[in-house]
């Protein structure tokens, strides 16, 4: 990476866990009470990468691939078995108390706000936890309230907020102490479309205007598409892909999918050069490569048998590419 000044540098990070194994059956369970068998699971194997200041990186991978373990190592919660990690000059697990002052962490599934009191009370407690100077706190509150449209909701107790409102508050809460690095663990999980867009545009703005470096884990590929300039993909504990989204798109071709609604009775119609994905009464779906076969050819071929009512063409979706990438690495 050209602008990589190595704000974050991981080298050969490895981590394995002992997991108690137990075979089914009461007898085995009783045995396990006394002599447990352990298998060692390698959660992370020789992970190395470096991220520059101001980057937005999407960290992806299937469930159980080691995403959250990496995040835990990088946020100083977990001590790895081997390897080194330097973030802003700190080793997260050694200089925990000093280091965490400079990072913000949002766990999408867990709240950091106090459930029964107004959001503003939570913010004030966080101010005291992080020892944020009053002037900085005030400036940040007014900036965040404006950017995330929080005016009306900060007076409400958290339990009365919708998930989208709550997530906006969570993000605000993790930014009160002006961290330079923000970890977002599934920030859009369970959000409706409007809230998703609001969260995304905020993260974008934050990165652009404040230069905050963002590391984002998500299963929602449209998050990645909207935000991340770079993707890190992990599977079975190893880093499998490190590059830009464009590169990924280039690798898997410029395939498109066409959905045709038709009227008339017909069996499945094969079109040379296109792969049929679905055929049902009134609807057919094909995938094709525009460089090999034009849309007009497909339509004219279909029109010979049925009456074409509607056509919809979409570029191959990033989810599909990710699945292909997973398949390539057999994870």
């Amino acid at each position: 990476m050209s602008r990589n000044n190595g704000m974050i540098r991981l080298e050969g990070i490895g981590k394995s866990f002992k997991v108690a194994t137990r075979t089914a059956g009461l007898k085995e369970a009783a045995k396990a009470l006394f002599a447990r068998k352990h298998t060692v699971v390698e959660a992370l194997k020789d992970i190395s990468f470096s991220i520059g200041e101001g980057e937005v990186v999407g960290y992806i991978g299937p469930n159980g691939a080691g995403k959250s373990t990496t995040i835990k190592v990088m946020s100083g919660i977990l001590v790895p078995d081997d390897g080194s990690c330097s973030i802003m000059g700190y080793t997260p697990w050694k200089d925990r108390a000093e280091y965490v002052k400079h990072i913000g962490v949002v766990f999408g599934q867990r709240s950091q706000l106090w459930w029964d009191v107004p959001v503003l009370d939570s913010f004030e407690l966080l101010r005291d936890i992080y020892k944020i100077p009053e002037a900085q706190y005030k400036a940040n509150i007014s900036m965040l309230t404006e950017m995330l449209a929080l005016e009306t909701i900060v007076q409400m107790p958290v339990r009365q907020l919708s998930l989208g409102q709550r997530m906006r508050c969570e993000i605000a809460a993790s930014l009160l102490h002006s961290p330079k690095l923000l970890f977002l663990d599934e920030p859009t999980i369970g959000l409706d479309a409007v809230s998703k867009l609001a969260v995304r545009s905020f993260i974008k703005k934050l990165n652009k205007e404040q230069g905050v470096t963002v590391i984002l884990t998500t299963h929602d590929m449209s998050d990645i598409e909207a935000l991340a300039s770079r993707i890190l993909m992990i599977g079975k504990g190893s880093l499998l892909y490190d590059g830009s989204l464009e590169e990924l798109k280039g690798r898997f071709g410029s395939g498109k999918t066409v959905t045709v609604d038709y009227r008339g009775e017909s069996g499945p119609i094969e079109i040379p050069g296109a792969a049929m994905l679905e055929w049902s009464a009134e609807r057919a779906v094909y995938s094709f490569d525009p460089e090999q076969l034009t849309l007009a050819e497909i339509v004219s071929r279909l029109s010979a048998f049925v009456e074409v009512v509607d056509i919809e063409v979409v570029a191959k979706d990033i989810d599909e590419m990710i699945v292909r990438l997973y398949e390539e690495h057999k994870i």
Binding site: K72, S75, I129, K131
Partner: peptide, 17 residues
């Protein structure tokens, strides 16, 4: 519930939190 992780990413002693 995993909330202990949350305490560890804050710059205060775990016991106090």
């Amino acid at each position: 519930k995993g909330d202990f992780d949350r305490l560890l990413v804050r710059p205060r002693s775990a016991a106090l939190q």
